[in-house]
Simulated scan of single mutants.
Amino acid sequence: MRAGDAFDVTRAASVQFLKPIRFRLIRVLDWPTYDGWVWLDGYQLDARGDAVSRRKIFVRRDGLRPAVPIRATGKRTRRG
């Protein structure tokens, strides 16, 4: 886990994520936790991959999944 990594955080990581979120990691916090759990500092991302809020989340490390890349859906226009 490194700064800049993005994760799809689901219920597998913690029951609080009944509705999954996409999360970009800033850092792993050095706070006391239970074995296998971590505090993460980062940004919740919207559907376009833009940061919408900064959050600290408490999750099971083995419940985190790498984020599936977001595909651009907008049409490009050519200016002439």
Results as ranks from 00 to 15, higher is better:
1 M>T: 02
3 A>V: 03
4 G>E: 07
5 D>S: 09
7 F>A: 07
7 F>P: 08
7 F>E: 08
8 D>C: 09
10 T>K: 03
11 R>P: 03
13 A>G: 08
15 V>I: 06
15 V>Y: 01
16 Q>C: 08
18 L>Q: 12
19 K>R: 15
20 P>A: 14
20 P>E: 04
21 I>Q: 13
21 I>L: 14
21 I>K: 15
24 R>G: 03
25 L>I: 07
25 L>Q: 01
25 L>F: 09
26 I>R: 08
27 R>K: 13
27 R>I: 05
28 V>Q: 06
29 L>K: 06
29 L>P: 08
30 D>M: 03
30 D>K: 11
31 W>Q: 13
31 W>D: 13
31 W>P: 01
32 P>I: 07
36 G>F: 02
36 G>V: 10
36 G>R: 10
37 W>E: 08
38 V>R: 09
38 V>D: 06
38 V>F: 00
39 W>C: 01
40 L>C: 10
41 D>R: 04
42 G>A: 02
44 Q>K: 07
47 A>T: 14
48 R>G: 04
48 R>K: 07
53 S>N: 12
53 S>Q: 15
54 R>Y: 10
55 R>N: 11
56 K>N: 13
56 K>F: 10
57 I>Q: 09
61 R>S: 10
61 R>A: 12
62 D>A: 15
62 D>V: 15
62 D>S: 14
63 G>L: 01
63 G>F: 05
64 L>I: 09
64 L>V: 10
65 R>Q: 15
67 A>I: 13
68 V>C: 08
68 V>Y: 01
68 V>G: 03
70 I>Y: 01
70 I>F: 07
73 T>K: 11
74 G>I: 02
74 G>C: 01
74 G>Q: 09
76 R>P: 05
77 T>W: 00
77 T>I: 02
78 R>V: 05
79 R>S: 08
